[in-house]
Amino acid sequence: MQYLIQATKEKFTTPRQSVHPIEDHLQAAADWLLYAQSATPDDGIAHSYDIREKKWLASYPETTGYAIPTLYDYAKYYNLPQYAEAATRMAVWESEIQLADGGVRAGMIDAEIVAPTIFNTGQVLFGWAKAWLETGDERFKTSLIKGSDWLVAAQDKDGAWRRFSSPFTSSKLNSYNTRSAFGLVRAYQAIGKTEYLDAAIANVDWTLSRAQTNDWLPDNCLSENFDLTALTHTIAYSIRGILEVGVAAERSDFIEKAHKMAKHVALCQREDGALNAYYSPDWKTTVAWSCITGNSQMAINWFRLAQLTGDKELILHAKKANRFNMSIQNLSSDDLRIRGAIKGSHPIGGGYMTYRYPNWATKFFMDGLMLEQLFEKIENVG
């Protein structure tokens, strides 16, 4: 019944906590990611902790893959090698479970269906690229090339990925696969194969060819209503992919489009710093609860765009989103399964990862805070 008490309290009150220095929030989040790794029988990170069922879900290859760079960065910034060691173990595990064709499986490691999928493969490229650059271990380079080659081979001539969609989502054609294109950019930067960058550019060109005049992208959600709404989580995925491919390819049109999309989202930000979770094609909100992962991802996008375009207004939006998420992170619980973690929705009974603390919410939370710190250092030097 504890989960119902928490859900009710969050629905009818504002149970926000004191915001501590960023370092405190980062340490608690990093410790939780390692605790979530230790909660599994392998070296992957548990998909999430479910407070209703009081159990950890199995390791999740997709998000373990992109948590790897976060932990390497945290280890480097704070001179804490144990987090890099944990990241390396995750990368080894990802190589061990990579499918023979080079792809990465859909779903959790205990899923009955074992099938490669575009998005998950794109996300694990981030981990292999970072692990290769950090360690020089050839197994990570081999996995990175196999995964990237598989993605390129699976791409249609127009730049779309129509095959190998996840069997666990109802959306089959995904604008947010620009995030997979971003994974290919990381592979290009690590390996130097220009075909990876070319494939990434082709995907963003195709994606933007379908954009509405108000910069809205179709097919940009996980749910069956993906033509009618989009989740901030997937909106932010698509923006980041468009932006980073644009940076790597020196395509100002990509950067400009990402900037416009991010400005639309900024206009929707609530006074408390959160974003409502779903938006319609006219950039209007359709629900009252917030997807916490989307808040962090948009903070990252706003900081990056402020750096690249000089739009300083976006800094305030990013900091507000970070502060909201910091205010709902539990730093005092004796329960290590939730202390330092970031939940899927606020209130926790909201429609995304309901009653769960998914590992990627904590990963993106850390990325947003570390980017804020880095941004402030650059600003102070300037």
Rank of each mutant, 00 (worst) to 15 (best):
Q2E: 15
Y3C: 09
L4Y: 12
Q6I: 14
E10L: 04
K11V: 11
K11D: 13
S18E: 15
I22M: 11
I22K: 08
I22C: 09
E23K: 12
D24C: 11
D24S: 12
H25A: 06
H25D: 06
L26A: 05
L26W: 00
A28K: 05
A29I: 05
A30W: 01
W32S: 00
D43P: 02
Y49I: 04
S59Y: 07
P61V: 07
E62D: 07
T64E: 06
G65E: 01
G65W: 00
Y66P: 01
A67W: 01
I68S: 02
I68L: 05
Y72R: 05
Y74L: 04
A75L: 05
Q82V: 14
Q82C: 13
A84Q: 04
A86I: 02
A87K: 01
E94I: 12
S95F: 12
E96W: 09
A106E: 05
A106R: 00
M108L: 14
V114C: 10
T117E: 13
N120E: 12
T121S: 09
G127Q: 03
R139E: 10
R139C: 10
L144K: 00
L151N: 01
L151A: 04
A154R: 08
A154C: 08
D156W: 10
K157H: 14
A160C: 13
A160V: 11
A160L: 11
S166W: 01
T169Y: 15
S175V: 01
N177Y: 15
R179L: 15
V185I: 13
Q189M: 13
Q189P: 08
Y196G: 00
L197Y: 06
D198S: 12
V204L: 07
T213K: 14
D215Q: 11
W216R: 02
L217P: 00
C221L: 09
C221N: 15
D227T: 14
A230E: 08
L231N: 15
A236P: 00
Y237A: 03
S238C: 12
R240L: 15
G241V: 02
E250V: 13
R251Q: 07
D253W: 08
A262Y: 03
Q269M: 06
R270E: 15
D272Q: 07
A274G: 11
A277D: 08
W283K: 06
K284Q: 15
I292L: 14
T293K: 06
G294W: 03
N295Q: 11
N295G: 09
M298H: 13
A299P: 01
N301W: 04
L305Q: 01
T309F: 04
N322R: 07
R323S: 13
M326T: 08
R337I: 10
I338Y: 04
I338K: 01
A341W: 02
A341Y: 03
Y352N: 11
T354E: 10
Y357V: 02
T362A: 06
K363L: 12
F365N: 00
L369M: 10
M370Y: 03
Q373A: 13
L374E: 15
